[in-house]
């Protein structure tokens, strides 16, 4: 079923919408959550919560042309929140690894107001991605949006793992510079 029809089902409050979303995107959503959490049972819970959240958000939202991105964002946020909640227990090694990588992108000492401006930050990242060559952009998005491992990316695109690591390292450094230019440095 195409995304437009699924969104119509949500809008008409037809619970078949959840079945169709699960059929079409369930395994991808679970994979994203599992990539973050490395715990399939918790990932399944995140997936279930995503369906509930989607049900609550459509309407007012109508993601007719970007349903996967819409539900993907939800499952990412839910899984990241689970990580945050459990960070004291240090249960999620994958999350620790990713956040360490992200630390390299953070300009030192930021303005708290800017910290709160997540939408502006996303705009900055969008502009950064637009400036990247397509191949590098895909590697970045696979790593930090889909949370694929370096090994998975190298296998999928036929690159060596060292190439993927080098590309990611350079992209993180470039993103840091880009954010500094965008006003994130003191």
């Amino acid at each position: 079923m195409d995304d437009n029809r699924i969104v119509e089902l949500y809008l008409s409050r037809n619970e078949e919408a959840i079945n169709q979303t699960a059929l079409k995107y369930g395994s991808k959503l679970r994979r994203i959550a599992d990539n973050i959490l490395n715990d399939i049972e918790t990932a399944k819970e995140c997936e279930n919560d995503t369906y509930n959240e989607t049900w609550n958000l459509i309407p007012p939202h109508e993601p007719r042309t970007y349903l996967f991105a819409f539900v993907g964002r939800i499952v990412r946020n839910i899984a990241l929140n689970v990580c945050k909640k459990n960070s004291a227990q240090k249960r999620y090694a994958v999350h620790c690894e990713l956040t360490q990588e992200m630390e390299e992108c953070l300009p030192a000492g930021n303005d708290p107001e800017e910290e709160a401006n997540a939408a502006f930050l996303t705009e900055q990242i969008d502009a950064f991605l637009e400036s990247c060559p397509k191949e590098q952009r895909i590697i970045f998005v696979r790593r930090y949006w889909y949370f694929d491992t370096v090994q998975e990316i190298s296998e999928k695109y036929g690159f060596s793992e060292s190439k993927v690591k080098v590309v990611l390292f350079r992209l993180r450094a470039a993103l840091k510079k880009h954010l500094e230019k965008g006003g994130y440095a003191i």
Binding site: N77, M102, E114, A118, A119, T122, L129, V141, Y144, W145
Partner: peptide, 14 residues
């Protein structure tokens, strides 16, 4: 800004 915020902000990319 925390590293986690950056991961979340990436969630909102186009």
């Amino acid at each position: 800004m925390k590293d986690d915020d950056l991961l979340k902000a990436i969630g909102g990319i186009n």
